[in-house]
């Protein structure tokens, strides 16, 4: 890795390879994480939610969301192929995808909080040095914002029935705990490389803190529930 941070823009895959293998590796890791996580999210959460929906309207909204998430996986996969990544689906998705969805309550809280984490990570890529990744994120973010807005609106609806407050609070507690590692460790050589090459600009802790700030504003300020303490510093 060169000493001075990279400050340029990289127009396409050929230009990325011209910058060098370290740049391709850095962009490739970010792209591959989205390839895996969009697919894992669609398979673990969105598709099962279609069957958990309480009414036709919710079922069909969940269907649209599932298809959009799967589409995001494919679009990131295309970026990975263009970059020449061997197999972007290899490797383990993040631990939050180990969560076993069992109820509609869990699904809507998940869309409000876990998809918010995805939004925080994607928003940072609006300033990435790799232009194809930036262009893709510009296209995908409106759909991701819709998914979060869906989660927020339907979580609010659930709280119209006070009896559901404990279940919503439990989902918040479980999902916040599982989402903390989503941003990576505080001491991260990968994140150092991402920032050196201008692929990302925030540390993992800064991204985690931003997610916690926005999540807390929704859970405590909007819902009147409690948001668990989140230490932005996390090393597993």
């Amino acid at each position: 890795m060169t000493a001075a941070p990279f400050a340029g823009e990289v127009a396409d895959a050929a230009a990325a390879h011209a910058v060098g293998p370290e740049y391709v590796a850095a962009v490739g890791k970010v792209v591959a994480s989205h390839v895996r996580n969009e697919l894992a999210g669609a398979a673990a959460f969105d598709e099962p939610a279609i069957a958990l929906a309480p009414a036709p309207k919710e079922k069909w909204l969940a269907c649209r969301i599932a298809m959009e998430e799967y589409g995001h996986h494919l679009k990131f996969q295309r970026l990975a192929t263009d970059l020449g990544l061997e197999d972007a689906t290899a490797g383990r998705p993040m631990t939050v995808f180990d969560y076993r969805l069992t109820s509609w309550v869990e699904f809507v809280v998940l869309k409000a909080l876990v998809d918010l984490a995805e939004v925080v990570l994607m928003e940072e890529l609006l300033a990435t040095s790799y232009v194809p990744l930036r262009d893709l994120v510009v296209k995908l973010l409106p759909e991701e914002h819709f998914h979060v807005a869906f989660g927020i609106a339907h979580t609010r609806d659930l709280l119209d029935r006070p009896a559901q407050r404990p279940q919503v609070q439990q989902a918040v507690d479980d999902l916040v705990r599982l989402t903390v590692p989503f941003f990576g460790r505080s001491a991260s050589a990968n994140n150092d490389a991402f920032r050196h090459w201008g692929v990302k600009h925030r540390t993992n802790d800064e991204a985690r803190a931003e997610w916690a700030r926005r999540g807390r504003a929704f859970v405590e300020g909007d819902l009147g529930l409690s948001f668990p303490d989140v230490d932005p510093h996390w090393n597993g």
Binding site: P56, C63, I65
Partner: peptide, 28 residues
């Protein structure tokens, strides 16, 4: 089918809930 249809049935307005319900139902 879903690759083709998800694009063809894409709601024009990304914030339009009604259009998302209709699109999801048609995909289903």
């Amino acid at each position: 089918a879903m690759l083709v249809a998800t694009e063809r049935l894409d709601p024009t307005d990304d914030a339009d809930v009604d259009a998302h319900v209709a699109s999801g139902a048609r995909l289903w």
